[in-house]
Design a protein around this nucleic acid. Structure first.
Length: 501
RNA sequence: GGUGGGUUCGUAUAACGGUUAGUACUCAGGAUUUUCAUUCCUGCAAUAGGAGUUCGAUUCUCCUACCCACUACCA
């Protein structure tokens, strides 16, 4: 959800300003490769209608070289691995980076040693002079190690005493002192791949990125990114940054996690996702949410239009979106509001579309070959009672099949005294009516019949509903009768007479 | 621990330094209805705490508290 929201804000911002929304896959950690993840992202964006107009192809085709449709190809960093090393070495040459030969074990030792002293180990100006790197080793030794070892890295040489001044589109001006930052690894010899920081800056530059809208977890890296643009001499074309607050769990503290959804019964993924462990997580799509509702809900989580309008189409969002209305604080996700949005969108849909979506649900429940026109009439009557299309069945199953049993509580409450007899008499009268069985006429006839006899309307009607629908709650009797028609009406009355007595 | 970010009803949010602090969701009542649902009406409920600036602070400044993120050869 958080990822979709970030993508959405990027999309809205880009489209509003006539820019391009580019999908780039940042897969520089070979150990964390997840099969199917990229295809999942593409499909999720497509379901949401948040379409990148440049980037990896939707069909997963591998684009190797730039072309008019793919001016900045390739778009997977794993396919771009060849370009990063030269940039990293340029920084070494210019004195902004250096080769580091410390093994993970050595660094681990440093960390635990610092911890036992109640301090935190930090690889920067304060410690790099006593560690094994090209700044402390001789030129010959460095050359030898570069040649003989395969696990060295290139680290950024964080300035010792600088105040890094930054601007964020959402948070305004921010300052951080460089002494609190560390010498981040930029490139790893072991897998010939850059880390996020290097790859991101190089690619953003090469791809002519003008705005970076990303999650708040990146804010602490922003000074490093500023310094990298500076070291490359690209500060004039540096993109503008906006750091979005996180999506928080509905109750308690902390960011939204997969667990929260499982526990409270709401999806946290746009689409159903099956992890490597075979565990399946719910998706908004599979749970019956409309993509428009999902997107609308996400848009309003951390942004507001400044008006009281709550329902926005994607196009309206493109028009209305503005970065200065984006909230700085994290937003707790509210599953009830998500449902409310779906309900609103459901009633906005026309009957034809809803009937089409209802058909498979009917088939699942053994109703095959339903007449589309009939289903449309049903849907028109019940759509305001539902949140999801799948609710239709619970609401209106008795418009497709005869009840086989009767709710015991309802029967005990209504099927007593002289009311059943009256209901049956009324039913007989209705059956005797010749001509058109339309709702208005049936309603008027029944009302007249009951009123002229001074019967209790509710009690009699509920007996009829019990006979027709198997329970006392539901649609109006005239609605039910006009829909199921005289034949089914007679049959159900007869069955009720036999079964309920 | 350090650094950075954040803080208005339970939740999402609104409010040129001047409002009875508004709206939506949820919840509770009521009206309408042949029941249920819808719809409509009403209600509950908030500026984290403390200083300061000001005639006046939700809004500006500082301190405190609390929350979050980061602090990897992950992104």
């Amino acid at each position: 959800m958080g990822g979709v929201r970030t993508a959405l804000y990027n999309y809205l911002y880009a489209r509003q300003r006539g820019g391009d929304f580019i999908l780039r896959i940042e897969d520089t950690d070979s150990r964390r490769f997840v099969p199917g993840a990229e295809a999942y992202i593409i499909e999720a964006l497509r379901w949401c209608g948040i379409l990148p107009n440049e980037g990896v192809d939707a069909d997963g085709k591998v684009v190797e070289t730039p072309s008019p449709e793919h001016p900045h190809a390739p778009y997977r960093q794993s396919q771009r691995r060849g370009i990063y090393r030269a940039y990293a070495e340029q920084l070494v040459r210019d004195g902004f980076a250096y080769y580091a030969f410390d093994s993970s074990e050595e660094l681990e030792r440093e960390r635990s040693a610092a911890e036992s002293r109640g301090e935190t180990f930090i690889y920067n100006a304060a410690s790099r002079q006593r560690l094994r790197n090209s700044l402390t080793l001789s030129e010959e030794e460095t050359a030898r190690l570069l040649e003989s070892q395969t696990d060295w890295t290139i680290r950024f040489r964080m300035p010792e005493d600088r105040v890094v001044k930054m601007d964020d589109l959402i948070r305004g001006h921010i300052e951080v002192h460089s002494s609190t930052l560390d010498d981040k690894v930029l490139w790893k010899r072991a897998d010939e791949l850059p880390t996020y920081h290097l790859a991101n800056i190089v690619d953003d530059h090469l791809m002519e990125i003008t705005e970076v809208i990303r999650g708040e977890e990146w804010l602490p890296s922003l000074p490093l990114h500023y310094l990298l643009y500076e070291a490359f001499g690209w500060q004039d074309s540096m993109p503008r940054f906006a750091h979005l607050s996180l999506l928080l769990k509905p109750v308690g503290n902390g960011k939204l996690s997969k667990r929260d959804g499982d526990k409270m019964g709401f999806p946290v993924f746009p689409l159903q996702w099956t992890g490597a462990d075979g565990e399946r997580s719910h998706g908004y799509r599979e749970d019956g949410y409309f993509p428009e509702a999902f997107v609308n809900m996400l848009a309003m989580l951390g942004w507001n239009p400044g008006t009281e309008q709550e329902l926005f189409s994607l196009e309206e969002l493109v028009q209305a979106f503005s970065m200065d209305k984006v909230q700085k604080a994290g937003a707790k996700f509210n599953p009830d509001k998500a449902k409310w949005y779906n309900k609103e969108y459901l009633r906005l849909k026309d009957e034809k579309e809803l009937a089409r979506l209802f058909l498979p649900v009917l088939e699942e429940n053994g109703v095959c070959g339903a007449d589309p026109a009939y289903v449309e009439r049903v849907v028109a009557l019940i759509k305001e009672r539902a949140t999801f299309v799948r609710d239709f069945w619970d609401i209106a199953w008795y418009l497709f099949r005869d009840p086989e049993s009767y709710d015991e509580k309802d029967a005990a409450k209504f099927w007593k005294e002289e009311n059943p007899a009256r209901a049956l008499e009324l039913a007989a009268h209705v059956c005797s009516l010749a001509g058109d069985w339309n709702k208005e006429r049936l309603e008027a006839e029944m009302e007249d019949y009951i009123r002229s006899r001074e019967w209790p309307m509710g009690k009699v009607m509920n007996c009829l509903r019990l006979a027709l629908a198997g329970r006392s709650s539901g649609l109006g009797i005239a609605d039910i009768a006009s829909l199921i028609g005289p034949e089914a009406f007679r049959r159900r009355i007869q069955t009720a007479k036999e079964k309920l007595g």
